[in-house]
Design a binder for these strands. Sequence first.
DNA 1: GATGAATGAGATTTCATTCAT
DNA 2: AATGAATGAAATCTCATTCAT
Lengths: 198, 198, 198, 198
Amino acid sequence: MTGGSVAQEGKRKQLLDAAVRVFARSGYHGSRVGDIAAEAGVAHGLLYHYFSSKDEVLETIFRENFGELLERFRGVEASELPAAEKLEAIAKILLRTWRNDPDLVTVMVRDVARSPQLQAQVDEVREAFAIVERVIVQGQAEGAFRADLDARLASWVVYGGLEEVLTGWVLGQLPAGEDEVARAERTVVELAVRGLSV
Amino acid sequence: MTGGSVAQEGKRKQLLDAAVRVFARSGYHGSRVGDIAAEAGVAHGLLYHYFSSKDEVLETIFRENFGELLERFRGVEASELPAAEKLEAIAKILLRTWRNDPDLVTVMVRDVARSPQLQAQVDEVREAFAIVERVIVQGQAEGAFRADLDARLASWVVYGGLEEVLTGWVLGQLPAGEDEVARAERTVVELAVRGLSV
Amino acid sequence: MTGGSVAQEGKRKQLLDAAVRVFARSGYHGSRVGDIAAEAGVAHGLLYHYFSSKDEVLETIFRENFGELLERFRGVEASELPAAEKLEAIAKILLRTWRNDPDLVTVMVRDVARSPQLQAQVDEVREAFAIVERVIVQGQAEGAFRADLDARLASWVVYGGLEEVLTGWVLGQLPAGEDEVARAERTVVELAVRGLSV
Amino acid sequence: MTGGSVAQEGKRKQLLDAAVRVFARSGYHGSRVGDIAAEAGVAHGLLYHYFSSKDEVLETIFRENFGELLERFRGVEASELPAAEKLEAIAKILLRTWRNDPDLVTVMVRDVARSPQLQAQVDEVREAFAIVERVIVQGQAEGAFRADLDARLASWVVYGGLEEVLTGWVLGQLPAGEDEVARAERTVVELAVRGLSV
DNA sequence: GATGAATGAGATTTCATTCAT
DNA sequence: AATGAATGAAATCTCATTCAT
């Protein structure tokens, strides 16, 4: 017996979780491989058993977490909801999912989001933007959203608004309690939907 | 005789300008002090005559340039314009920095924003947000903007929308020609103002 | 199988021994970390696995070796010998370190003694002086040594005489063969004991 | 008119005095050329107008000060005094002269005395030792000092005793008031003379 | 004489990565 | 799988010295 499934994938998961905490605390460049291993309670050589480099750890964090988010975005897009409600659903997913794990949000916003290096990442983030864009186009086709606004650009503006709120929470500069999160959802959605509406 | 205006401005300016170009090209962590000096055409030791560390170079770039931006924001706030037009003016100032100095915007968006904890940065950016927030409050007082939206939160959303557009340009994922910049101004302003309006 | 005793003792010991040789040859400031590593036959990075800095290497050399000396001084103090013989024993211990490990003595005399402010050093050397002082006081109590001399001061003078002889050997300005060492013992002890005697 | 003699040699003297203070405070290797210039209140480039290197500054400090001391030792040696009194005179010169300038003593004892590099220095210090040695030989010839002790070795022991007392004062570990200095003179002389006496 | 900007060799230290055990 | 000693490329920073003004 080699233990249950937790032990099976144990060390790899421990390392990944530790990396999120360490990156959140010190930033990617400010974190050493040894810090991650120490936080995970293993020898640092072990990290190279599971990952080929420090870089791949960050990439893995991104891939395994952003992919899930993307899946849910796709679900929203595929649904029968009107555009405005799809936008609302997306906003809620983004703001709520990440509230579950502030450290992960910190890493995503600070370290991953603007690294132009990771190609897989760029592709996946691009897809998230594309979904928002298509929802806006849908709204324009339905006659609910103004057709004279560039949907592409609008998707960036909306996404940026969402991300900045997350950043505000991450930096501790916006109140991030339960109520505030609910209010933030309304505010962003109201702003976006009314801004886009005919 | 001390040569042309470049020499006039001095090596400090040359180093700062070179640093912006080098950071824009390779990122802060991907740039070596020697690269900056080489780009400036001076010995690397000279950098330490003017700055105490590589880090201080980045901080100086931020401080000297964001400070200027902030000055202009303050000018807008102090003007007699209605809130919507103030918002428009701020958006224009911010977005036009891109065409003005793309390298600088790249560094600001990619490197400064992710930098560990430049306290000066936090303070000054906070002030920029505060200006937007006060303009929104003014609009609410004038009855032009909806009073039921949290001005604080709204300011983050608006600012985030603007910053994300800059990011799109920096990452080469949004078209960034003259026309597109003009269109982006309109789009963001329309979205924000109509989103905020009664 | 892990090889002979050199390998047994480990790289840390190798580095420390190499440092003594290198410091003796070129002086602390004239030696580079890379020289020590090369002399030890390891990569220079390894030095930082065992010590936090070049400085700590010197401090460790001092601590681990002077500590041993001090132990032996304490043994002498604790013995039942009359004061004059204790002084003689201490002188022999100190002077014989030269033939035992000339490089070590060189480093101690030339580099440690001039080092900025190794606090450990100050404390331990102080203790060595204190032992000599207590032995003198004992001699005064026994009526063998003159009571009108300040024991504290006398301990410095005696210790200084010993150290200067070591310095003469280190600088190559006093002959340092087997015979000369034996003669030096007698000379210093004669001088000190007769000088102190009633 | 270019001012009086003080102004004439003004800056050079200022630099030398400043160097003594700075070296005393931080040690030779811990002091930067810029520190010396700052302490002297001049630009650091000026140091190179008067001295060819940082090293030459230290050498100059030694030469200009130790030479004076040596002159006085020579005077004592040339006098008609008996050996014991010559020894006493030398001890007084050493302990008193240096008490006039604690910083200078600090530098001499800590930075100069054990640098095997400066050849001029080695020669002059050697001469000082030689004087003490010849005085001891004289005492032996006069029948006052024991002939069975090695005069060379004895001179080092005596000189070392003196230097160590200076070191104790420099390090602040021996009380260094007016009275203590007088007592130290007696102690050292008593020890040495009685130790050497028949 | 005097200044201080400019130079650049050189040194310490860091840390991702490898690998023998 | 797991460890952590060992490696060594690479980077920042220091500072004595030079030199144009």
